[in-house]
Amino acid sequence: MPKVKERKKAAPIPVLPLLTGKALLNKTKELPDLSRRELARECGYFSATKKGEIRINLAEFYEALLQARGISLDSESGQKRGREATYRVSVQKNGQILIGSAYTKEMGLEPGDVFEVKLGYKHIHLIHQGLEDEE
């Protein structure tokens, strides 16, 4: 008769509340000597595998920490690709200022649109000429 392996019964995994917001920030301040993985586990960011092993959810933990500190990594525009418009540009070595396509798309500009440039003291106004011609 072949030997049948008996499965070891895993110890029950304790249920810890999933901390968020101020409670999460306070817990991280209370336990400064723990490693990242231990801290995530103490804050409830873990799950059990089918084998009964504990899996630490570090990504979820870090996202909750950032959110608790008021930092959001999600783009509000819903775009997932490319750079996000910063509304800042630099003068290039050749003296030109390049305005990226994110700005022109947001304004609905088309190739060939014309602008009047008005210089002020430490500012530049671009006035779209297409709107005045149509009216």
Score class of each variant (00 low, 15 high):
K5N: 03
K9M: 11
K9V: 08
A10S: 15
P12L: 03
P12F: 00
P14Y: 06
V15N: 04
L16C: 05
L16P: 01
L16N: 07
L18T: 11
L19S: 10
L19E: 08
T20Y: 14
T20F: 14
G21Q: 03
G21I: 04
K22Y: 13
K22G: 15
A23T: 05
A23C: 01
L24C: 08
L25C: 11
L25M: 15
L25H: 14
N26W: 06
K27F: 06
K27G: 02
T28Q: 15
E30L: 14
L31N: 14
P32H: 07
P32C: 07
P32D: 13
L34D: 12
E38A: 15
L39I: 02
A40N: 06
A40L: 03
R41Q: 04
E42T: 07
E42M: 12
C43L: 08
C43N: 09
C43W: 05
G44P: 07
G44Q: 08
G44H: 07
Y45I: 05
S47Y: 02
A48G: 09
K50T: 05
K50W: 00
K50H: 09
K51M: 12
E53Q: 12
E53S: 11
I54H: 01
R55A: 02
I56E: 05
N57K: 11
L58I: 15
A59M: 02
E60F: 03
F61K: 04
F61C: 05
Y62L: 11
Y62R: 10
E63Q: 12
E63N: 08
L66Q: 13
L66V: 01
Q67S: 12
R69T: 00
G70L: 07
I71W: 05
L73E: 08
D74Q: 09
D74P: 06
S75A: 09
E76T: 08
Q79F: 10
R81Q: 09
G82N: 02
E84I: 09
A85Y: 02
T86A: 07
Y87E: 04
R88T: 01
V89W: 01
V89R: 10
S90K: 15
S90Q: 03
V91S: 02
Q92E: 15
Q92I: 06
Q92K: 12
Q92R: 15
G95T: 13
Q96F: 10
I97E: 04
I97K: 10
L98Q: 14
I99F: 13
G100Y: 04
S101E: 13
S101A: 14
A102Q: 09
Y103A: 06
Y103R: 03
T104P: 02
K105D: 09
E106H: 07
M107R: 09
G108W: 03
G108Y: 00
L109A: 03
L109D: 02
E110Q: 11
E110Y: 06
G112D: 11
V114Q: 12
F115Q: 00
F115I: 00
F115L: 05
E116V: 03
E116T: 11
V117K: 10
V117A: 11
K118N: 12
K118W: 02
L119D: 11
Y121A: 01
K122W: 03
K122Y: 06
H123A: 02
H123S: 05
I124T: 11
I124G: 04
I124Y: 01
I127C: 00
I127S: 08
H128I: 07
H128Y: 15
Q129K: 09
G130P: 02
L131P: 00
E132N: 02
E132F: 06
E132L: 01
D133W: 10
D133N: 12
E135S: 07
